[in-house]
Amino acid sequence: MRIDPYSLELFISVIEEGSIARAASRSHIAPSALSRRIADLEAAIGVALLIRSPSGVQPTEAGRHAYASARAIHGRLEDMAREVQSMSGQIAGIVRLHANASAIVGFLPERLTTFKARYPLAGIALTEQISDEVIRACLDDRADVGISASGKTPAGLDSWHFADDPLMVVLPPGHELAQADNLSFAEVTRFPLVALQAGGSLDQTLKEHADAARLPLNVTVTVNSFDAQCRMVEAGLGIGIVPTSAASAFAGSRNFVRLPLRESWGSGRTLRVHAPRKSSRLKAVQALIDTLIDSKG
């Protein structure tokens, strides 16, 4: 039986995408070539791994087991390559970085540019996730480095300050609160809100403080990105509470008024870098951490 790592990588993509076509696009390979690779993999193993239909693909029972094993094998191969590259004395290899949306739109691009300029042989595999999932990925060792808005650092992780990112209120210019210098949370909750994805750190923070203050949240629409949130505010569907990074990126035009949220839990919001606690780290991982926590870039 001969099973090559590339076929396993393609199989993983097919399962995660649920489609031969989407997996082919993700892996930059022709769908027909990818399909042949999967057929060869099934022939080598001797069982069907996929249930194919016009709407996509699903794993068989054997396929689910194969996917879990393939992920583990692929991870070990990546670890081996990174460790060998690290032993060469050069800062090289791929660093797995998971980050929340506000880090990605606000502060990360410039610091990654600095990192790439300093260490051209090193690469970044960046995954956007909500803050809780960033923490989980670091704890599970699926991420070498994470950036989140989580205020708690679980045992098993090291953590450093990354950036201050206080909360702001974004409003259309004609809104009745637009002339204020800053706004309390109680004032904001009197009006319809455009909310961001349920389950994220910002969503959890607003719900926790609304519950504590016994303030109802009048959510008129929920969206999955800061740009969509600001677009809905611009259209007059409500007002939004967003990090300063997002307000600068998506609400920087004259179509918006941006006001600080007066509460200490809003003005004190920060982003933090996390990494699995280890006695030693790969050179590229440590180099990325050092670059991220260096506010001078």
Rank of each mutant, 00 (worst) to 15 (best):
M232Q: 12
K152N: 09
S253I: 10
H175E: 05
A212Y: 09
D164T: 15
G199C: 09
G151P: 00
K207P: 00
L261P: 01
A155I: 10
L217E: 04
L206A: 02
L215K: 04
E208V: 11
P260D: 04
E234L: 09
V194E: 03
V145F: 06
S148N: 06
E263K: 11
N224D: 11
T153E: 01
S245G: 01
V273S: 04
L193C: 05
L183F: 09
V194M: 02
T222A: 07
N218M: 14
A143G: 06
M232K: 08
L217F: 01
G240S: 15
T220C: 04
A180P: 01
R262Y: 10
R269Y: 06
A213F: 07
A155P: 02
K152S: 11
V242F: 03
S159A: 15
S248Y: 06
A210Y: 04
H274E: 04
V169P: 01
L202K: 03
S264D: 11
A186M: 09
T244F: 06
L237Y: 09
E234T: 07
T220R: 09
D158R: 12
S148W: 03
Q229T: 14
F162D: 00
F226K: 06
L215V: 06
L271V: 08
K152D: 09
L139F: 05
L177V: 07
P154M: 09
D158Y: 08
A163E: 08
S253Q: 08
V221F: 02
E187D: 15
T205G: 05
F185E: 00
A210P: 02
L139G: 02
Q229L: 14
F250D: 04
V273I: 13
S150R: 10
R277F: 07
F250E: 00
G151E: 12
T189L: 11
D211A: 11
W160T: 12
R262Q: 14
L196K: 04
C138F: 05
L217T: 03
L177Q: 06
S279L: 15
N255I: 04
L237T: 06
T270N: 10
T270C: 13
R277H: 14
I241K: 01
T205W: 02
R281L: 13
D140Q: 10
K278G: 06
G151T: 13
R269M: 13
V145P: 00
Q204L: 14
P166N: 04
Q179Y: 13
N224T: 15
A180V: 07
D211T: 10
L171Q: 06
A212G: 05
S248A: 12
A235G: 07
V233C: 03
V219Q: 02
A235P: 00
L167R: 06
A246I: 07
V273T: 07
D203M: 01
T153C: 15
F250T: 03
I147V: 14
I241H: 03
L157Q: 07
R254T: 12
V223T: 11
A143Y: 03
T270E: 12
D165Q: 06
H209T: 05
L261D: 00
